[in-house]
Design a protein around this nucleic acid. Structure first.
Lengths: 302, 302
DNA sequence: CTCCAGTCTTTTATCGACAAAAAACCTTTT
DNA sequence: AAAAGGTTTTTTGTCGATAAAAGACTGGAG
């Protein structure tokens, strides 16, 4: 099988959104830039589209012959990269399934279960190891350290240090710094989401990440930025699998964010400190609650 | 070639150190534990040793027939794992060679140059990426961010936060905590090294790492521990390739460590703070000096 | 019934192969 | 001669194969 053409399929689907019957498409290079792929793949997409009669590649340009229909799209599950598939399967296994901390992780078994080659699994595990949830024994298996209380506490200990640092740095940004503008538009998004929270509460997760990443970016430190990757993956799966009281929790978090934004804008350090700590404290409580209550490190999960 | 038998060769060499003519070797399991390898490999080693007349595997046990000679050892360069070889080559390239930040890193080319398969190089790069010196473009090449001034500054910014935190935690350790004992014996080692600094100054690097790791361990936070890996690799190669005034620098660092140890033992937080900051400041200066002077991020290296 | 060595099975480390995707190069058109 | 499309080369992502190493099973001796 060598390589899957997920880039092609995802690009194809994205490209379908650009088609309006009768219109002409821009140059291949421009399309590539728009879709975030190489011109080579753009050409494959265009040829395929010509093959099914969506466009005509004549001398006058790339003419769109008809609007795309639902049937033209590749199924969504075929557009995920292998890495994403592996990550999801793995997270499901260690979170949803009854995986115990200290358990061995077997590359071969994982690969067989997911239906992919061992190299892909190996590479995933190496990449994933930076999150501190698994550990490798040289020449031997991986060990699952698990999503335990201890993990959550250690995570938040660092998060607090980094976020306070970044928030302080944020207040020192010059008045005309683009990050301040972004903060304003994030505030607008927060207010909009809060207004329609009943129907849109699931969108909070993504907004949350953008908000915190913006603050962290003020630190201008790659290690702080990279650390947010750990937080992001934890919360990503946390939000996905723990829907209990989700709407209520997200409402509260939105309100905390708004107070936090207000504090950042005021540049009053004491206020920033207070708002930041308050929000992180409630975020930690939420996370800890979803890890089964009990002693430290005895196999309780998000 | 599939897999190299470096585990076997390194185990064999280590095992040679255990041989005394006339003596008997312990059980296979015990040997495995001592050498840190599986019984399977121990058996291969023993059979090989029997083959060259080093031991006799009779019914009475594993009798050593003669003391090992220099010729019995496998050459050192055959005992390094591929990962180590790749790391060294790569570091030489990006530090010693004229690699510019922003430069592309080509897996295939690297693999060819080093003479290994692409997968090994890929895996190395993924593992190495956690250090913040390289970055991957999806579906494309890696980018060298480089050992720049900015990198060193960001590194030390976090290091200071983590080390101060850990040092404070260290002072709060109970009187009988094993780490305190270790601190005492590290102090002895420091004094010994200082006394013979003229001839042994190259040993400082290794002692330095053990000292700081001990302090960091008091934080009991996996992210703090993991972060020390970044520092460790930077200093490892820094010490290797920057021998200018090494003896003088190491003497100074040893003295700073001794003051730091003294402060930790006193449990006087103000004193700890001062000693820690003083040492980190001079460590940062040393590192920055070895990066060519100049503006930020314009391609200067350790 | 624990320890030990002998045997068999499984897993990991590494390579080479090959399709997808990117990148480089070349040609045409305006 | 810039910008677009066409062609060729290179590199990346993924797999399967294979030797080394780990691990599991087995029977015998103290």
């Amino acid at each position: 099988m060598s390589k899957q053409n997920t880039v092609f399929k995802e690009g194809y689907n994205k490209c379908l959104g650009l088609l309006t019957s009768g219109a002409f498409l821009p140059s291949e290079a421009e399309l590539g830039a728009k879709l975030g792929i190489s011109r080579t793949t753009v050409r494959t997409i265009l040829k395929t589209m010509a093959g099914v009669g969506l466009v005509e590649l004549g001398n006058q340009g790339k003419k769109v012959l008809r609007n795309p229909r639902q049937k033209d799209y590749f199924p969504e599950d075929q557009t995920d990269s292998l890495a994403e598939i592996i990550e999801r399967s793995f997270m499901k296994r260690i979170l949803a399934g009854g995986a115990q901390p200290g358990m061995q992780i077997n590359e071969l078994e994982l690969a067989r279960d997911i239906g992919v080659g061992t190299s892909s699994v190996r590479e995933f595990l190496i990449r994933f190891s930076r999150f501190g949830l698994i550990e490798k024994r040289k020449n031997s298996h991986w060990i699952l350290k698990g999503f335990t209380r201890a993990f959550a506490l250690e995570l938040f200990e660092i998060r607090e240090v980094f976020e306070l640092k970044s928030a302080v740095a944020f207040t020192k940004l010059p008045e005309d710094h683009p990050a301040r503008e972004k903060l304003d538009s994030l505030e607008v998004e927060h207010l909009a989401l809060l207004r329609e929270i009943d129907s849109r509460y699931t969108e909070f997760s993504e907004l949350d990440e953008r908000f915190h990443r913006l603050i962290h970016s003020a630190s201008r430190n790659r290690f702080v930025d990279d650390f947010y990757d750990v937080i992001a993956i934890v919360f990503h799966y946390h939000y996905q699998w723990n829907k209990l009281h989700a709407q209520q929790r997200n409402t509260r978090a939105l309100e905390e964010h708004l107070a936090y934004i207000e504090a950042l804008r005021s540049r009053d350090l004491a206020k920033v400190n207070k708002a930041c700590r308050a929000h992180l404290k409630s975020a930690r409580e939420t996370l800890l609650q979803s890890i089964m209550p009990g002693d430290d490190d005895q196999g309780h999960y998000i």
